[in-house]
Design a protein around this nucleic acid. Structure first.
Lengths: 102, 102
DNA sequence: TATTGATACCTCGGATTACGATGTATAGCG
DNA sequence: CGCTATACATCGTAATCCGAGGTATCAATA
C-alpha cells in the first residue's frame, strides 16, 4: 500500500491495535500486518508521538530476560478513534467523487 | 480535514477533476472545494508533479487577456485512478479493523 | 560450539509533500 | 483609485514514512 495513503490512518491503526488489550511494539506489528504493513522504525516513531500527545501511556516490564514495553490507551486516544470515524464520511465523499461517471 | 489524511488522495482528486473535461487551476480548486479544500500552492505543486509523471498534459491558452493553462488527463492518469480504486479495498479493511468491537 | 532466526527495543538521515506567505498580473465594479 | 475576483508561480517550514543500522536475549539447528 502506498506510503502517502497510510498517513493519517497509521496512528489510528496503532490505537485500534491496543484499544481492547494492552500490547507491545513487536506484537502490534504482527497484529497489524494482515491489515497494514508498517516498519519498526515507523511504529516506534508513532508510539513516541502518541505518548507525547497523551493518547497512550507506557509501562515497562521484563519478560523472559527481554525488555518489553506495554502500551495502554487513554481517553484521549479513544477520542482520537472516534474523531477519525467522524472524518470517515468525508473520505467516502471523496471516493464517490473519484468514482462517479464511469 | 486532516492534512495527513489528504496525502495520497489529493493527486487522485485532481485527476478526477479533469477526467471528463479539461480544466484549469483556478476552476479545479472551485470544483473540488465542496469535497476537499486545497490551497493554490498545493494545487500547483500537484499539477506540476502529475505533469512530470506524465499523468496529464498542459496546453497554455489566452483567455480574456489572462493566461490560462488547461490540463488534460493521459492514459497513465486514468490508470492512476483505477489503481486507486483497487487500493480502496485495503482502505475499507483498515476502517473495519478500526471500527470493530465497539 | 557456532550460527542463525526470532524476539524486542532504539536512532538517524533521506525523501515526499501539504500549506502559509508572498509575488505577479489583468479585468471589472463602485 | 481601491477592491475583489481571476489566474499563475515560488519558497521555506513542518510533518512523517521508511530503509539502514545498532544493541541485546533466547531457542533451535548444524
Amino acid at each position: 500500500m502506498d506510503a502517502q495513503l497510510k498517513r493519517g490512518v497509521l496512528d489510528v491503526c496503532v490505537l485500534a491495535a491496543i484499544k481492547n488489550e494492552d500490547s507491545y511494539g513487536y506484537k502490534i506489528i504482527k497484529d497489524l500486518s494482515p491489515i497494514v504493513e508498517l516498519s519498526e522504525s515507523t511504529l516506534y516513531t508513532i508510539l513516541k508521538r502518541l505518548e507525547t500527545a497523551s493518547m497512550l501511556v507506557v509501562r515497562s516490564t521484563e519478560f523472559e530476560g527481554r525488555l518489553r514495553k506495554y502500551y495502554h490507551i487513554t481517553p484521549r486516544g479513544l477520542q482520537r478513534i472516534l474523531d477519525f470515524k467522524n472524518e470517515w464520511k468525508e473520505i467516502m465523499d471523496i471516493y464517490s467523487f473519484i468514482g462517479k461517471e464511469d
